[in-house]
């Protein structure tokens, strides 16, 4: 089952870690980094049902996450 509870003791730090990983990368490189991260973390989870649920949730929220403006 997909866990959507907060699992980090310091969620702000976890968020910053991901943001910082992209610092200095071009947009193209950022997209490539994200793709690699998704594959790595999906493999770490190793459960197709969980992966499926995560994809469902992410897609459901996709329209909300479209960047508005610049």
């Amino acid at each position: 089952m997909l866990s959507t509870q907060s699992n980090f003791t310091d969620p702000d730090a976890a968020y910053r870690l991901i943001v910082e990983a992209h610092r200095g990368l071009s947009d193209e490189q950022s997209a490539a980094l994200d793709a690699a991260l998704v594959l790595l973390l999906a493999n770490h989870i190793g459960d197709a049902d969980v992966l499926h649920a995560a994809i469902e949730l992410a897609k459901r929220r996709l329209s909300d996450s479209q960047t508005k403006g610049t």
Binding site: S6, F8, D12, V19, H22, L57, R61, D64, T67
Partner: peptide, 30 residues
């Protein structure tokens, strides 16, 4: 930085957190 993201990618991540926060507790905490 969360309020004023530095780059397009940082803004995308921020927007994803805001979108997911509507139904996922972990994102609310971010």
């Amino acid at each position: 930085n969360f309020i004023a993201p530095h780059s397009r990618q940082e803004r995308r991540l921020r927007q994803a957190v805001l979108a997911l926060a509507k139904e996922a507790d972990f994102a609310k905490r971010m």
